[in-house]
């Protein structure tokens, strides 16, 4: 699933908002939030502006936008958040000196998960560092696969990975 937020403009006529949002369910999506702002500049008197957040199956966005335009909706802004799932893990070991860039890359290049945060504490050169790594992934299953990639990298590099309890899908 992809999370999309968009700002829409449409004519301020009865039933227009319902018509504008119907394509969301038609394309297999879910509406997560609708924010209706009334404090708009009044120069466009008969136009209303609405911000929505929807969850959509991969690859259906273009179709949704086309269908919305067919309903007379003007799309003002579009933002996608592809990586809905988040999981933090702890790593202990020689994280820096075992090529941290490579560790992060191996997850990033999966295509379905990315390292979104990394906080590291390095006490002294010869001592093991500790880090909290946050991974974002497109689905719960991709998260499990991403964590498996991290486990594998950690095995190679002799890094201890501490996984959260009970977050596996």
């Amino acid at each position: 699933m992809v999370q999309v937020s968009m700002k829409l403009e449409m004519s301020d006529t009865p039933g227009q908002l319902v018509r504008a949002l119907k394509p969301v369910s038609d394309t297999g999506g879910n509406i997560i939030a609708v924010i209706h702002q009334r404090e708009e500049r009044r120069e466009k008197k008969d136009i209303i502006s609405v911000q929505i957040v929807v969850e959509l199956p991969e690859g259906r966005l273009e179709e949704l936008l086309a269908r919305m335009r067919d309903q007379g909706v003007s799309i003002q802004r579009l933002g996608t958040q592809r990586l809905l799932h988040r999981r933090s893990l702890i790593m202990i070991g020689h994280i820096m000196h075992t090529d941290l860039t490579d560790t992060v890359d191996r997850i990033d290049k999966t295509g379905f998960a990315e390292v979104s945060e990394l906080e590291m504490i390095m006490p002294a050169i010869s001592e093991p560092s500790s880090a909290r790594i946050t991974i974002r992934a497109t689905s719960a299953e991709s998260m499990d696969r991403a964590v498996e990639v991290l486990r594998e990298v950690a095995r190679e590099k002799d890094i201890l990975v501490i996984e959260p309890l009970g977050e596996e899908s």
Binding site: I90, I92, P128, S130, R132, I162, L165
Partner: peptide, 20 residues
């Protein structure tokens, strides 16, 4: 191999480390 730093980092997530 657990470090006090690792526990501190887990506390930022309102968590701690236990042998389970």
């Amino acid at each position: 191999q657990i470090t006090p730093d690792a526990i501190r980092l887990s506390e930022d997530e309102d968590a701690t480390i236990r042998l389970i």
